[in-house]
Simulated scan of single mutants.
Amino acid sequence: MGDIINTSDAIKDTSHLTFQCPILTATNYPIWSLRIKAIFKAHGIWESIEPGTDVDQKKDNAAIAYLYQSLPEDLILQVAGCTHAKEIWDAIKTRHLGVERVMEARLQTLKAEFEAARMKDSEKIDDFAAKLSGIASKSAALGTVIEETTLVRKILTAIPEKFLNMAATIEQLVDLKTVKFHEVVGRLKAYEERTSLKTTNNSHDQLLLSYEG
């Protein structure tokens, strides 16, 4: 079973959209806290956590109810003595501080890996793009999203010299602030295939000339 389940009483906003309530585990605190924060903001009750002072009692009670729905039973018993949502939130944060630090260390490693990534001359566009996408996926899973524009600029600056003319053309033709990563990868891949075909044909011509000579 995954770490996200539908609550018995579906959480709905004023537009009658159904939310899923994330369940806190031993390892998912960073993602859990982001999701809970988003749900609380959608319901207008995040103020019960930040700043957590002079909070309307109904909002505080609602926040406590949602937190209880997202906690495992053993943890609910441990925070049952807390009277306000902020107290519960802070207790959970303190409990998972070690996990958060590990996540931050992993994010720093991924950031360094992303910044150092360079495409080799023998590497294919598809393979290098998959490597960047993989780093982005791992980063997102840890709570930090690598923006589309960052991915686009990375691949255009990390490709070998043989692609530089195409990279310059792409920069002139498209808006780097809005173009999608997969679109840039597609253009580079098409260029790669054309140049590869041209190289193959030239090699074939050279063999024919050598044979005829």
Rank of each mutant, 00 (worst) to 15 (best):
L67G: 01
V99K: 12
Q172S: 13
I31D: 11
D13H: 05
A85K: 02
L24A: 04
S8E: 10
R101S: 07
F128L: 00
L110D: 02
A63Y: 05
K93G: 04
E171D: 11
A91W: 06
D9E: 13
W46I: 07
L142K: 02
N61I: 11
V55C: 03
M119G: 01
T199D: 10
A63I: 03
G2F: 12
P51V: 01
L151K: 06
G52P: 01
F40Q: 00
V174T: 12
G213F: 15
H96A: 03
D13G: 04
S33A: 14
V55E: 02
L173V: 09
L132M: 04
I170K: 06
L209T: 13
E87T: 11
L197E: 08
G213R: 15
E147I: 08
S137L: 08
K198E: 10
M103D: 12
T195Y: 04
N61C: 14
Q20E: 06
W46P: 00
D175Y: 07
I88H: 00
P22K: 04
K124V: 00
T94S: 12
K180R: 10
L209F: 11
L142P: 02
L97P: 00
Q69S: 09
L17C: 13
T150N: 07
N202A: 09
I64K: 12
N202R: 14
I146P: 05
A62I: 11
I39H: 05
T178W: 05
W32G: 04
K111Q: 14
K41G: 00
Q20C: 08
V152Q: 07
Q69H: 12
V102D: 15
A42H: 07
I76E: 06
C21E: 06
L71E: 06
S133A: 12
T53M: 11
L17K: 15
K120C: 00
V55Y: 06
Q206K: 15
S210M: 12
I23V: 13
V79C: 00
D127T: 10
S70I: 01
S33G: 00
R35F: 03
A80T: 10
I49Y: 04
T7W: 05
T149H: 06
E123I: 00
I23K: 12
G134S: 03
L197D: 08
A26E: 15
S210V: 08
N28L: 02
I92Y: 04
D13S: 04
D90T: 13
L209M: 14
F40V: 03
P160C: 02
S133P: 02
L197P: 03
D13L: 06
A38K: 11
L176C: 05
G213A: 15
E148C: 06
A190V: 08
G2C: 11
S70P: 03
L67D: 01
